[in-house]
Simulated assay, not measured.
Amino acid sequence: MSTTESTSLYDNLEQMDIRSLLENINREDQKVAFAVEKEIPSIDALISQIVPRMSKGGRLFYIGAGTSGRLGILDASECPPTYGVPFDWVVGIIAGGDAAIRKAVENAEDDPLQAWKDIMEFGFNENDTVIGIAASGTTPYVIGGVKAAREAGLLTGCITCNNGSPLAEAVEYPIQVVVGPEFVTGSTRMKSGTAQKLVLNMISTTTMIKLGRVKGNKMVDMQLSNEKLVKRGTRMIMETTGLDEKTAFDLLMNHGSVRAAVESFYKK
């Protein structure tokens, strides 16, 4: 039996009081970061291949089903506002299409041919990367997608929570974060989902930093899509240049990004 399907270390959950349930869930969650730490060399190896490809115009595709697909979409959708990159630099694709983001689509994950068709809607080039996300490592949609991508010459990686899975065997750069049995047996939206989210954060954040989308420790290319972000951008400019708030705000509004505003200030 795979680790993700193995029996919980806890039983008679319905008989536990609320405090005990919370403490035991938290106890299991604390294991996740240590499991991710063990896979840092594998994450490093994959990112080291992604960055030079994206610097040449490649894109990053996440493919997954269910929770895994939703996590990929979440990470991808946050890259444009956070780093000011085009919406198609990082693309999240879920089995069953956008309808499956909110509601499960029956049998969508069982078609091994559909993921590549979904990727093809975006076109592809030799510098693209496809990362398959599946806690079990057995999802046909994901396995079929990475196999087709690899055959087409694209870089392939995966994030799974079982060792030696078919998905890991199908890619060049597997990341296998084994977090142990779930608190509720087989509920991989819990520890496995948390592990996948942590790894996705590491991949996208590190990649964007190495592509120059962060300066110092600041998101200098973030989209100014609401008042909170405008205020954040204004503070960044004030801290960097020593300008007062009104002048920093005006400079930001005139140039549209923290990066452009600061560069304009120092060109004077």
Rank of each mutant, 00 (worst) to 15 (best):
I47M: 02
M219Y: 11
I73N: 13
Y141I: 04
I131H: 08
S264L: 01
Q196T: 05
T207L: 08
K103A: 10
E169Q: 15
K246G: 06
C158F: 14
T7Y: 12
M190R: 04
V178L: 08
D111C: 06
S204C: 12
L154M: 13
A65I: 06
K117E: 13
V199S: 03
D44S: 10
P181W: 14
T82K: 10
Y83Q: 01
K197Y: 09
A168C: 12
D88Q: 05
A248E: 08
V258K: 01
L60H: 07
Y62R: 01
D44W: 15
L211D: 09
S165A: 09
K246D: 14
W89C: 02
Q49A: 08
K56A: 11
D111R: 09
E245S: 07
V90L: 00
N26R: 13
P52V: 11
D244H: 13
P81D: 03
Y83K: 00
G72T: 09
E37F: 12
D118C: 00
M1T: 14
T240G: 02
I203E: 01
M219N: 13
Y62F: 15
I63D: 03
L167D: 13
K117G: 06
I237V: 05
D88Y: 10
Q15M: 14
D11G: 14
G58D: 05
V146F: 13
I203K: 00
